[in-house]
Design a protein around this nucleic acid. Sequence first.
DNA 1: TACTGCGTAATTTTT
DNA 2: TTACGCAGTA
Length: 1049
Amino acid sequence: MVPKSSVRWESNHAEPRTGMVELNMVELNKDQLNAEQRAAVEHGEGPLLIVAGAGTGKTHVIVERVGYLLRTAPGLEPENILALTFARKAAEEMRRRAGEYFGERALGCRFSTFHAFCYDLLREEIPLRALDKIDQWIFFRRHLEELELDYYLKVSEPGRFLHDLVDFCSRCHDNLVSPVQYSQYVEKLAAEVAQLAKQGRPPGKDAEQEIARLREHARVYERSETLQKQEYLLSFGAMISMAVSRLNESPQLLRQLQQRYAYILVDEFQDTNAAQWELLKLLAGKRRNVTVVGDDYQAIYRFRGASDGSLEQFRKKDFPTCERKVLNQNYRSTKSILNVAHAVARKLDSYKEDKRLVTKKKDQGCTVEVWEFPDAGQQSEFVAQEIARQIQAGEAKAYSDFAVLYRAHRYRNRLVEALRRREVPFAIRNLAIDNLPPVRDMVACLRAIGRPEDSVSLARVLAGPRWEMEASLLWEGCRLARERQCSLREVVEDSGWGGQWPGKAKLLGFLSRYQKLSREQRLLSWFPLLRQELDLFGLKEEGDDTALGAFTDFVIQWDQEKSTAGLLGEFLEYFGYFEEAGGRISLPDEDDPAPTGAASLGESRQGTLWDQSAEAESLGKVQLMTVHGAKGLEFENVFVLHLLRRAFPTSNRRPLISLPDALWKGSLLEGDFHIEEERRLFYVALTRARSTLTLCTVSNKRQQPSRFLDELRNDQLRDEQLREDKDGGSEIDWKKLSAPTEPVLQALRQEDTIRQPPFSQIERWTGAMAAPPAGSLTLSASGLDTYRQCPRKYQYSYVCRLPVSPSPALLFGSIMHRAVRELVSRLAAGRDASNDASRNASKKAGGDAGREVQQPETVEAILDQHWSSAGFTDPHQESKYKEMGREQLAGLKKALEGQPFQLLHQEKGFQFSVKAKQGGGTKLLGRIDQINQLAGQDVELIEYKTGRAQTQKEADRSLQLTLYALACREVLGLKPLSLVLYNLTTQEGFRTTRGPDDFKELQGQIRQVSRDILAGKFPALPGYHCRYCDFRPICPAYEDSRQGDAVPG
DNA sequence: TACTGCGTAATTTTT
DNA sequence: TTACGCAGTA
């Protein structure tokens, strides 16, 4: 892994750099252009396509061409040059270099991203505000009712499909499909379907449903666009498409721009989408002085709308007269690395022989290594160990010479732990700070102030040392709140409670002081004060400032750009949606100017998470980032982590709502385009390395190496056999770590003991609640289920008894249970005595009472009688639920009408004990919805479900049903011959049975769970269910430990 | 060649 | 919760 000779290009960097990663080719002096580069730079008029492979000086050529044009084009002023790219940083970097090479005059050129260019263009006319994806989600969520969702509405989770809808709209913009055009497309289809029906070929229900679904897309797109326009909001996609519209509508403006921008240059052209492409053609006008630079192999952004084959299209379709220049002299990587990269490129559809990269480095460089590990833990340990070793041995000079790349952020966590253990400094690009303890403390504090009913957040706050509360008192308060069915806050405010608690007055004063402020003043006016006060709590640790600074910026931005009155309540609503939409707050880069008034608030973002001595500082930090994040960067030594099946390449996930082919501009996606894109991503990863490249993978029973590695190995074998093309084969050293090395073993041994992230105080307090008093354990079916899903959730809910407000879905369920009970009892009564089943039914309907029960007014009346709005916060959601309730009740009635039944019990409570082998027993509690008599002691149990329709399999496996059947036999002395799980959503009942073996198994499970509970075993079992868990604000599984610093630059 | 059932894992990001 | 890939079957 040691470079045989350390070829260093950065002669102007005598000292090791600290963290700062330069874009490639900075090192080349402007006069050092090779022949191809020079030809590209000195191209005259007309369209020019520069196909520039990785490390061939792409950006350098653009900047040089800007300089060349300024020097040579007669009468050309800087403002006549427009240089466009995609990332803000890339645009800034171009501008910086142009200034550096050609002086101040060059700064007069326009260096911009496509988005910024369009945004500015549109804002010249109307003041607009940009909406990112998350904010667009929130916008949709707030206007849910106006969108009139039907197919895409899930009542229990109204935001469920909003990302899909937002993505769909965005794809329309990318392809310049307007709401009208989409609607026309749908109506044309609808007409065709209708035509078929006329011809006596009924299209079937599927087609009708499909049309309805498409119409819903059209409606959402049209409505959301109208609403956004009304509020002067602009999504990313709309920036481009609206700019194109504006240019089309205003020939004068277009002419003006065409005259102004005599030369247009585009970097990373392979990432353009149809809309950007159209914009470019418009701006280029008749002069067509467009220079585009790109590399098909590095097109990795099709998932966000970039069209396929932009470079080919440029040449073949729109600018057939263009000149094509290929840059293939690579200044970055060793020959070994390029050989491996070539082996990958060769497999691409867009492969072109003339693009083959040729290294300018003189020696071969060291062999590329592929390491296979028995598990992911050892993989991370190895990488961390290897980096530490190379620094210690002097094989590498600085930590900042290392980069570790991964496909997705989540593969980073283990590595972070491993690096930290070895005290290797590292920096993470795009680090989200949302789940860091100080930020969570702050959010909990804001919620405790603004939402008195939020007991979970208050509990987190109360655990802070400042309030001098004992853990036992907190849990006593929680238990009391549950008993009184009130919030923790109400208990705390009760003057008769907590007399022995010294900090009580201080806490109440604190809460009421900020509550008053929060109702009267903008959040921003008192937020710094709160932050300062929290600093005094004694919880502050190193690095907290950095994270809290980023959160402060987030609040500032919200206040200045997104809020109306700026009050806390509005912020909490916004933030709740922000979290639900999956929003992340990232650390800002240190070289960015503070976007808002952070400095004026006395903030500092300079704090680092690592207290480094000056000596350590000079070694920089290992760079951790995703492969996407690494595009455009280069590093001396690159590790690529986790090259596994299903991890890299990932498995394909196509969008839920796709734009029809007929509306897709640009070439259609053909073949296995997902694998193609992943392969290009792999290519990008490989070509980041200058001297050493190490690929890591894992192989065991469940995990297998990536197919990309298989391909490399097969290629190598084939080449060795053929020996025809000495340079063609990838020379890779395949290594396998079968037995962990001693340092790795040591580290793994340490893992359990050291891995104690600085969780919030409440985590320690929860430990005090470990064991409930022995011998008095009571379990319900839901308690049992909860423990099995996540023991920690059980602890919060049943042991600590933290009060939580029931979710709308739960409220609906309990209302429906009561309503169903009434309906069933009326139906049963109606059958027995066919007179007064319904007082509300009109007499005019006449006939027997059984029919009277079917009158819709009765359903309405029953539902109204049991409905309570308490707990529903969203009126639209409530009315949707009520609508569902009506349908479900009506459906049930209809279903029951056809099936006579003998009602024996309703809501029948039970209680019995399961004896433990030693010590006391466990008391089981529950209530059975309905018991019908079949014959004699034979009965049928019915359990109603209002949520997602359960399946036969779920009925067969349901613990709840087993428990009820057992109770039925043990307590009621009845024989449960049949158990029915009845779905009110589908009016489908699944019938199942339980036998002695099932009861035995259940009792065994109950004993096991009881033992674990009494032993205080409450590990958190994180999973998808965390999304819906009330205890997220205090759960350690949801809390990141502090991580590395943000990458500057 | 489809279908069905189970186990596993849930991207990447532009002002 | 859901959707995909893989293995086993009609």
